[in-house]
Amino acid sequence: MNVFRLLGDISHLLAIIILLLKIWKTRSCAGISGRSQVLFAVVYTARYLDLFTSYISAYNSIMKLVFLAASYGTIYLMFIKFKASYDHNHDTFRIEFLILPCVLLSLLINHEFSPLEILWTFSIYLESVAILPQLFMVSKTGEAESITSHYLFALGSYRALYILNWIYRYYAESHYDVIAIVAGIVQTVLYCDFFYLYITKGIYGQ
């Protein structure tokens, strides 16, 4: 554990909490892509199956459980409790165009051809593009509430901080995972346009 990794995890946790609080406080999930949230639930489920097979640390297990619970909690709020506020009409990104290539790629490029390893790889690939329905929704409506922007900024920062963590680990521990690194860079690049808008609007727009 290094400071970049810790900050990345905190940023990730913050993003999830911001989203849950936003939906809970406003009793509405307007402007939030249910499709992205479903993809994130798939990502966490596929990746954290190793909760049953390998123990790393209490921190690791607790964080995994929190991410799973928060993700399914978000889905419950969006699709059941505050279903009426869900913005179907603007959430139209075809997620099969993301899922199928990720399935294919994880079968072709992985560290080991075993079920858990393929699921882990699939989750890494899918996570890198899971935000696209949300970004598509924001660009389609041409606006995002400031709280949604904070959510996206925290969520994007998480993988950017992980890149710093990977650079650190490469030099300090000779540890690297090419699949995670490449997918993490793709994931971060997808947020660049949003980061630019968030920073320039945040500073000059108010």
Binding site: S54, N60, L116, H175, Y176
Partner: peptide
């Protein structure tokens, strides 16, 4: 020391 199956990150 690159390990295949131990993914210690979240």
């Amino acid at each position: 020391n690159f390990t295949l199956t131990s993914h210690d990150e979240l």
